[in-house]
Design a protein around this nucleic acid. Structure first.
Length: 714
RNA sequence: GGGCGAUUAGCUCAGUUGGUAGAGCGCGUCAUUGACGUUGACGAUGUCAGAGGUUCGAAUCCUCUAUCGCCCACCA
């Protein structure tokens, strides 16, 4: 017996060595598994794409969960003989990364506007590449058996090429347009967003009632009211029946008399306020829709930095945050303030990143018509081509798809994939121009300039499944697409998962994955969301350092049902550190008890031992069923209990008198049984606790290959 | 306003197709030179949110109520 078993299991001296052994074997790569004969060339495939890690920081607890669950999946399938591919990746994570980088600049007293775009891009690229080195080593520390030779980055030339082709195809198919539409604009970050990057926050503010000609109108944003020249009311509102659609009225207003036009529209809620409102189409989504329906004129009041434009007269140049009260004062002076409700509760759109109030603006951006894409996705989902775990995510997805909005994919930031398009400064027309050949507008003959915007990062990651596998002709695409499982955070069901489904079907005609497995948030021990400001962020690497990676992995998976959040406590991880040691010491007992046993012998198995082996088979069959049904949280717990409470507490205990007894045949039977149970458990435990099991496996007498490519015991 | 989920032992949570409740941590008592104290044995603790229904039988299926949480939404 190896002397190392005389000491407790030591993860620190083991894990690095074992990972290196795995990497050098090449078995992370399915092609090498075939070449070395551990996988059959005609075996069915199993593929997972690692959600590309944001290359802007280090691994957090959520990544620990991803690496654990996905590694369990792929190790299990690999042991079952599948041609198994787990493809790792990195995401340039456009806006997210730029924000992280800006914070870094802020500490140095700079902003991104201090740098020319090319220099800024290069600096962020360097920053990203530096981070990506750390990330790779951290992913390895988690034991991830992914195929590093196939690693992809969202900015790799072949990925960008695929993304560009999709952009072009969308344009050719009439699914792309450059529209002057109202978009959500963050005045602080100086970029527009899609509807998903907006967070609603309930705020209590003042609500103002102003006299506008014969009407009283209400608003929470007096600073937008300069250009209001349409008075809108519900067509069925009897109170205002005397006013006809299109009728003109005059009103004394902020900077003098204005002419208002009556508009009747059903969007007005008769119950709300006075049932009459004036509209600001340039800065309000609902107003914009009304204006479009009635073909009304729109005017910009606020510039992109949040300052009032010349239309505001004496207030021009003031920031809206300061101008509001001054405007109200002026109206009061004119006797136009009827009343002010001090406690008006309503939802305000804010930037999900910085909390700045979103200023809707009408801007020319590239939009994708989502309805046709969503309809195809809905058909496939309803036909059962994608299995959701947990299944209620299917409902959440279909509900979102049924109410989908067009997707603004333009971002006014440098860090991202440049949009391959030209814009006419004359008429604003946009042209997709992959080869950089266009120079003149075909509409107005104006000169074209390059679009300086970049793609929404989700537009590229939304194409991840087919882009990384070499669509359309790559061997991997043929071998591994559609992928089997997409395992990721429930949080990004719309951002990423649903868009991958739509774009995957659009480009390849097939759904990109057969099963979506969604995990919940990883919270701190008190079930609170981790955040830097609260100071309760748990670094997974601190835990693996302290308790070993195997212990960490068990803690992440046991009892953690898909879709629900996990409260991560050290106590739980500590318990599984003890478990790793339990495996270690049970092994020591078995090895000590079988030192005089000839591993090549096949003794007659006693009736008693046959019973134990049958019990083992039952347990393995049950656990295998859980593995096949994605119930890792149960399989892990059952393995834990079988090993500890059945094998260690009962079987080993009752083996002691047999081993030291005089019945030689019973002894040999039990020796062979102990070895068999131990090996079976090591195999089944391997996907969960790969390091300690592999380390033990290497110390067993009659084992030659690595445990990671042994056959699953069922 | 719409949708989704949760409510089970002190804490964090399991409970796969309905068959009189489980785990980890914590707690109590005992054990101790022999695989392991990172241990072993034994034990305590729950009207499974509430009400009604289906059923021979419900934590599990249905309806309603309450509380909490999340997501979506253009009432100015």
């Amino acid at each position: 017996m190896d002397e190392k078993f005389l000491k407790p299991y030591d993860p620190k001296s083991t894990e690095g060595k074992i990972y290196k052994l795995w990497e050098e074997s090449g078995f992370f790569n399915p092609d090498i598994c075939i070449a070395k004969g551990v996988t059959k060339a005609d075996a069915p495939s199993f593929s997972i794409l690692m959600p590309p890690t944001n290359a802007n920081g280090s691994l957090h607890a959520g990544h620990g969960l991803v690496m654990t669950i996905e590694d369990i999946m792929v190790r299990y399938k690999r042991m079952r003989g599948f041609r198994t591919l787990w493809l790792p990746g990195l995401d340039h994570a456009g806006f997210e990364t730029q924000v992280v980088y800006e914070k870094k600049l802020e500490k140095e007293g700079k902003t991104r506007f201090d740098f020319p775009p090319e220099e800024l891009y290069k600096n962020i690229l360097d920053f990203t590449l530096e981070n990506s080195k750390n990330i790779k080593s951290q992913v390895a520390k988690m034991g991830a058996s992914c195929d590093w030779s196939r690693e992809k980055f969202t900015l790799d030339p072949e990925i960008v090429k695929t993304v560009y082709q999709t952009f072009k195809k969308l344009s050719d198919d009439g699914l792309l347009y450059r529209g002057k539409r109202i978009v959500s604009w963050c005045p602080r970050h100086q970029t527009s967003f899609s509807d998903l990057e907006i967070a609603d926050v309930e705020k209590t503010e003042k609500f103002y009632y102003f006299k506008y000609g014969p009407f009283t109108i209400s608003t929470s944003r007096p600073e937008t009211k300069f250009g209001d020249k349409y008075v809108v009311m519900h067509p069925a509102d009897k109170r205002y029946a005397e006013y006809k659609d299109g009728q003109k009225i005059t009103a004394e207003w902020i900077n003098g008399p204005v002419t208002g036009t009556i508009i009747k529209d059903e969007a007005v809620d008769m119950e709300f306020g006075t049932g009459v409102m004036t509209i600001t189409p340039w800065h309000d989504t609902a107003d914009f829709e009304i204006a479009k329906r009635h073909d009304l004129k729109m005017e910009q009041i606020i510039d992109l930095k949040g300052k009032l434009l010349p239309i505001a007269g004496e207030f021009a140049g003031q920031h809206i945050s300061k101008a509001r009260e001054a405007i109200v004062e002026k109206l009061r002076g004119k006797g136009l303030v009827e009343k002010i409700d001090e406690n008006y509760k309503h939802n305000v759109h804010t930037c999900y990143k910085c909390g700045t109030t979103i200023e809707p603006q009408v801007l020319p951006q590239w939009f994708i018509k989502m309805k046709p894409l969503a309809e195809k996705a809905l058909e496939r989902i309803k036909a059962g081509e994608i299995k959701y775990i947990p299944d209620h995510y299917e409902k959440i997805t279909t509900h979102w798809l049924e109410n989908i909005m067009d997707w603004n994919i333009s971002r006014q930031i440098v860090w991202g994939i440049p949009i391959p398009a030209k814009i006419c400064d004359g008429c604003g027309e946009g042209y997709v121009d992959l080869d950089d050949t266009l120079s003149k507008c075909t509409k107005c003959e104006g000169a074209l300039r390059k679009d300086t915007d970049t793609f929404d990062t989700w537009f590229s990651s939304g194409q991840w499944p087919f882009a990384t596998l070499g669509f359309p002709d790559g061997k991997d695409f043929k071998d591994f697409y559609p992928t089997d499982v997409m395992e990721t955070a429930g949080e990004i069901i719309f951002f990423w998962v649903s868009r991958m489904i739509m774009l995957g079907i659009y480009r390849t005609g097939k759904v990109p994955f057969k099963t979506v497995y969604l995990h919940g948030l990883v919270l701190d021990a008190k079930a609170q969301k981790m955040s830097k400001s609260k100071g309760n962020v748990i670094n997974p690497l601190d835990l693996t350092e302290k308790f070993g990676t195997d212990a960490f992995r068990m803690g992440m998976v046991v009892g953690n049902t898909p879709g629900t959040s996990l409260a991560l406590s050290e106590d739980k991880i500590r318990a599984y550190k003890n478990f790793a040691n339990k495996i270690w010491n049970a092994t020591r007992f078995v090895l000590e008890s079988t030192q005089d046993f000839d591993t090549k012998a096949s003794p007659t198995v006693s009736e008693k031992d046959k019973g134990l082996l049958a019990e083992l088979d039952d347990a393995m069959r049950d656990i295998t069923k859980d593995m096949d049904n994605f119930r890792y949280y149960l399989a892990g717990e059952k393995l834990y209990h079988y090993f500890w409470n059945t094998f260690a507490d009962v079987i080993i205990e009752e083996s002691k008198p047999i081993i030291s007894g005089t019945d030689e045949s019973a002894k040999q039977s039990r020796q062979s049984t102990l070895l068999h149970i131990l090996k079976t458990c090591l195999k089944a435990l391997h996907p969960f606790v790969p390091f300690v099991t592999e380390e033990i496996w290497s110390s067993l007498e009659d084992t030659e290959s690595l445990l990671m490519v042994e056959n699953w015991p069922a």
